[in-house]
């Protein structure tokens, strides 16, 4: 190890692959978060609906997902579903489905807490000007909740982005998988893993910075 000679040309020679792989990981995270937000919002409303037939299955979904390792979920959806005769998903779709369900479970908890934290006076003010139930949600409750939960949503995006490295387990060519492949061809283990780690770090850091800017922009709540 002490005599290891760094040769960074392996990175520059494969720069296009690294960039494409990083882009894929980001795309997987963003798409999964978007779907997860829709699932999470529906699940959160089901949880607060007061209807047992809605809230109990949703509660079960959230607990099962949260108590199962993500890698296991990935394997289950990718290898397990075909066993039940569901062949329609390629591995990328399968991974997006898994990560969306995973994100949805976490987002439902975020949104549930967000809905619960909205002072009821705002809803009463919305009633008092004559807004109908769904209008109250659309124009008052949801925008306020969005601002309250923005930090958690952003942190979930950063987590999901890092979780996309697990897609390597089913050979999706995101950053981790790509790095391993380049390793196998070049044996420049240190350079490749350092470069990949640096890219995860830089991207996650930029996301955190962007999040902070967004939070400042929507700081009107406090």
């Amino acid at each position: 190890m002490i005599d290891y000679h760094f040769d960074w040309t392996v990175i520059t020679r494969n720069a296009d692959k690294f960039v494409a792989a990083l882009g894929l990981g980001l795309g997987l995270a963003v798409v999964s978060l978007a779907i997860g937000c829709v699932i999470g919002l529906a699940a959160a409303y089901a949880r607060v609906s007061g209807n047992k037939w809605l809230s109990t299955p949703v509660w079960a979904y959230v607990e099962v997902i949260r108590c199962t390792p993500l890698l296991l979920l990935i394997f289950f959806v990718y290898f397990g579903l075909p066993e039940f005769g569901i062949y329609v998903l390629d591995k990328t779709q399968s991974f997006i489905l898994t990560l969306s369900l995973y994100a949805g479970a976490y987002m439902s908890e975020v949104f549930r807490a967000g809905l619960a934290s909205i002072p009821k006076q705002y809803v009463e003010a919305a009633k008092a000007i004559g807004l109908r139930p769904w209008q109250r949600q659309r124009w008052v409750v949801l925008p306020v909740m969005f601002r309250i939960t923005l930090p958690s949503v952003g942190n979930n995006l950063i987590s999901l982005f890092k979780d996309t490295s697990l897609a390597a387990a089913i050979a999706i060519p995101e950053l981790t998988f790509t790095a391993r492949q380049i390793n196998a061809n070049t044996f420049r283990v240190m350079e490749v893993w350092l470069a990949a780690s640096g890219m995860y770090l830089a991207t996650a850091y930029l996301m955190a910075m962007g999040l902070r800017l967004l939070e400042r922009r929507y700081a009107s709540i406090r």
Partner: peptide, 9 residues
């Protein structure tokens, strides 16, 4: 209302 209840956003 006593507590104004303006929409904060």
């Amino acid at each position: 209302f006593q507590s104004f209840n303006l929409f904060p956003h």
